[in-house]
Amino acid sequence: MAQENNAAQALPPKKRIKTAQYRPVSLNMFPAMALFTCVLVSLLKDYSTDPVQIQPTEDTQLPRSDTKLPPQKAIQIAISLRSILVDNVKVAEISDFQVKPQYKQDSNPNSMVIVPLMEVLQKKADQEKMIARYNSQRQELQFKGMVTIIADKRVPFRLLTEVLYTAGQAEYGQYKFAVIKNQGSS
């Protein structure tokens, strides 16, 4: 088609009108459609089976690690530079790497207990225990007290331990720190 056009352009104007043939060209989109469908199916499969769903933001940059353990389904506590979230619901605000005092027990900035976080986790623990009670035969539904911690790599140790301590008070004593696996560690 390109060669024909070049040939037509080389002809004098009068002949070009007679000889040039303009045929509509339709782009074959089926291979692209097949490719996109495959990509979509693959992404949806990963998206639905991944137990840790992380929204990458400037405030939540995960550290890298050589760990080989895969994530497990558990309650997620995210610690960003601005807030603490439980299963994507904000429970407390952070300012200057510290939980604001109004969220602490007795508004004491030195307290280890973050009150709204503990209340939410206690409710979740009660729910999980009730589910476990009615499904005593199913091992996967038993209460294990497990939480996944999704913390920004700049979060200070003190803030991290406050969250862990509060979770411990709400009967969650097993922690899984979510990290990005280094290449070659899986």
Partner: peptide, 17 residues
């Protein structure tokens, strides 16, 4: 845009403080 792309997530087990 809403997933972590090709980064693979892992976990580290830690016990209570």
């Amino acid at each position: 845009f809403t997933s972590t792309g090709l980064a693979e997530i892992g976990v580290i087990n830690v016990n209570a403080p």
